[in-house]
Amino acid sequence: SQQIATAKDKYEWLVSRIVKNHNENWLSVSRKMQASPEYQDYVYLEGTQKAKKLFLQHIHRLK
């Protein structure tokens, strides 16, 4: 749906803004993002596993 696509774009923007180093780990980054509406919306719509998967894809691109 359009809502999910929009939430994903915003979440990816948030991840790219916060995660600048491929050594970052999911636990510390997800804690930093918990207060962000972009993170909350995406997790609400798609779940934590998908959020983690996108985070890991971003990390992989930074290597």
Score class of each variant (00 low, 15 high):
A51R: 01
K32S: 07
K20P: 04
K52M: 06
H58M: 08
N23E: 13
Y39K: 02
S30V: 12
V15C: 06
A5F: 05
E12L: 14
G47L: 03
Y42M: 01
V15W: 01
N23P: 02
V15G: 01
Q49N: 09
V43I: 10
W13Q: 15
N25M: 08
V19C: 11
L56Q: 13
A51N: 00
K53M: 14
L54A: 06
S30F: 07
M33P: 05
N21W: 01
Q34R: 12
V29S: 05
Q2V: 06
A35I: 05
F55I: 05
L54G: 04
H60T: 12
K10G: 04
K52T: 00
L54Y: 05
R61D: 08
A5K: 14
K8P: 08
T6K: 10
R61K: 13
Q34G: 07
S1N: 13
F55Q: 01
E38N: 04
N21A: 05
W13E: 15
A51E: 00
S36M: 15
K52R: 11
I59P: 02
Q57G: 09
R17Y: 03
Q3A: 11
W26H: 03
N23L: 08
E38S: 06
A35L: 09
P37H: 11
M33Q: 00
A35C: 10
S36F: 14
I59L: 13
N23V: 05
D9P: 02
I59A: 06
Q40S: 06
Y44H: 15
W13S: 15
N21L: 05
R61E: 12
F55E: 01
H58D: 00
A51Q: 00
Y44C: 14
Q57R: 09
E24C: 01
N21S: 12
Q34H: 08
S36I: 12
K50H: 11
M33G: 02
E12N: 13
K50R: 08
T6D: 11
N25G: 11
L54Q: 02
K52N: 03
Y42A: 03
N21G: 10
Y42S: 01
I4H: 09
A35R: 11
R31W: 09
K63M: 02
V15S: 00
L14R: 02
G47C: 00
Q2H: 08
L54W: 03
K50V: 03
V29K: 04
R31N: 10
S1K: 12
S28E: 15
V29W: 10
T6E: 14
Y42L: 03
V43C: 09
E46D: 01
I59M: 12
H22L: 09
H58K: 03
K8E: 06
Q49V: 11
S1D: 14
L56Y: 11
R31C: 07
L62Y: 06
I59R: 05
N21M: 05
A7E: 02
I4W: 01
A35H: 14
Y44A: 15
D41A: 12
V43K: 02
S16V: 05
M33T: 02
E38K: 04
R31Y: 08
V43M: 04
Q49F: 07
S16I: 03
L54E: 01
K63T: 07
Y42H: 02
A35M: 10
V29L: 06
F55T: 02
K53G: 09
N21H: 12
N23C: 11
K53E: 15
Q3S: 11
K52C: 03
A5G: 07
Y11E: 00
K8R: 14
W13I: 14
H22S: 13
D41W: 07
K52Y: 09
K32D: 04
L54M: 05
A5L: 10
S16Y: 07
H22Q: 14
M33A: 00
T6Y: 12
Q40L: 13
A35Y: 11
W26D: 04
Q2T: 13
G47T: 01
Q34N: 08
L27M: 13
Q49A: 13
Y44L: 15
S16A: 13
E38Y: 09
A7H: 07
G47W: 01
E46A: 11
N25W: 03
S36N: 11
L45N: 04
A7G: 02
H22P: 15
I59D: 05
S30P: 00
R61M: 09
Y44W: 09
K8I: 05
I18D: 05
Y42K: 04
Y39Q: 00
R17S: 10
K50E: 12
F55N: 02
K20H: 11
K20Y: 01
F55R: 02
L62V: 06
L27A: 15
I4E: 02
H22M: 09
K53D: 14
K20F: 04
L14F: 09
E12C: 12
S30T: 08
R31T: 09
H22C: 13
L56E: 14
K32P: 00
N25P: 07
D41F: 04
Y11A: 01
L14N: 00
S30H: 13
W13P: 01
A7P: 06
D41H: 13
S36Q: 14
A5C: 09
H22R: 06
L62S: 02
A7F: 00
Q57N: 10
I4T: 10
H22N: 07
W26F: 09
H60Q: 15
Q40Y: 04
E46V: 10
K53H: 11
W26L: 03
K52V: 02
K63R: 11
V43Q: 03
S28I: 05
A35D: 14
V43L: 06
